[in-house]
């Protein structure tokens, strides 16, 4: 039995088929990146995992159990509006535990401090989200989902709006945290390099309706470590080009079918 399992999941909005029968298994602790052309249905798939959207048919199983409505096992990190502006950085992280009855106030405080340290925001604990950078806000959101105790982090283009340098730093951090905390991540991006760098496995989608065009096992190709040195390596480059070619092929497909 695998950890997270898509079984013939489809999604249609009225006449529009967004996800064709889709099957995928994700292992616990795995970092899976969804890569695909715009509008192919990546967000839709991810939202179905989060329970924010229901499959039209098929099932998504977590440890063999069908998924119900949203709960804190599946945490979301959005590209924008990722932190509540009316709460401080620490308040946002603590918000992840607000509805948890299994923790005492002292435990919540300790966990808040822990995850703030983990994402490197201890010094900004009392700052308002509007006064910190976009990358810091994404870190706040990551810390909040971790503090909530989410086993799966669902991240929809979380670093899309960041400059290259911040993005790189955040990628490193995310990878480290994910390893340390042993969480499963599903990560959506358009950036081929980001996909190659972060993923254990990259799923490349076709155009809508989403089908799997290719699966690339990055760990098998590059090893489990994501380091900056790796980024300069020839293997990384080859992988990146391969992914790029796959993405291009979906694009050409689009041009071919366009009237």
């Amino acid at each position: 039995m695998s950890y997270l399992e898509f079984r013939s999941v489809t999604k249609r909005y009225g006449p529009v088929e967004v996800v064709a029968p889709f099957d995928l298994e994700v292992a616990e602790g795995e970092f899976v990146v969804f890569l695909g052309p715009s509008g192919c249905g990546k967000t839709t798939l991810m939202r179905m995992v989060g329970g924010l959207e229901q499959p039209s048919s098929g099932r998504i199983l977590l440890r063999g159990q069908p998924l119900g409505p949203p709960d804190r096992r599946r945490g979301m990190v959005f590209q924008s509006y990722s932190a509540f502006p009316w709460l401080t950085v620490a308040g946002n992280v603590a918000y992840g535990m607000r509805y948890r009855r299994d923790l005492t106030a002292a435990e919540k405080r300790a966990r808040t401090a822990h995850f703030l340290r983990l994402v490197g925001l201890t010094d900004f604990a009392h700052q308002w989200p509007n006064r910190i950078s976009g990358g810091m806000r994404q870190r706040v959101a990551i810390a909040r989902t971790l503090a909530a105790g989410s086993e799966i982090l669902l991240m929809d283009e979380p670093f899309g709006a960041l400059d290259a340098l911040r993005r790189e730093r955040l990628q490193l951090e995310l990878r480290r945290i994910q390893r340390e905390e042993g969480r499963t991540v599903i990560f959506v991006t358009h950036d081929v390099e980001e996909a190659a760098f972060l993923a254990d496995r990259v799923i490349v989608f076709t155009r809508r309706p989403a089908r799997i065009l290719a699966e690339v096992d990055v760990t098998a190709r590059l090893g489990p470590e994501s380091t900056l040195e790796l980024r300069g390596s020839a293997e990384f480059f080859a992988l990146r080009n391969e992914l790029l070619a796959l993405v291009r092929s979906t694009d050409e497909e689009e041009e071919a079918t366009a009237p």
């Binding site: 949203p70 709960d71 599946r74 959005f78 990722s82 509540f84 509805y99 909530a148």
Partner: peptide
């Protein structure tokens, strides 16, 4: 923003708490 509500849902906020903890302050 619906993201605020979805954030709350995915940390386990019950429906009515989203009114007081998300809608109202937002």
């Amino acid at each position: 923003p619906h993201e605020f509500h979805e954030t709350a849902m995915t940390v386990g906020a019950p429906g009515w708490r989203r009114l007081t903890d998300v809608s109202l302050p937002a």
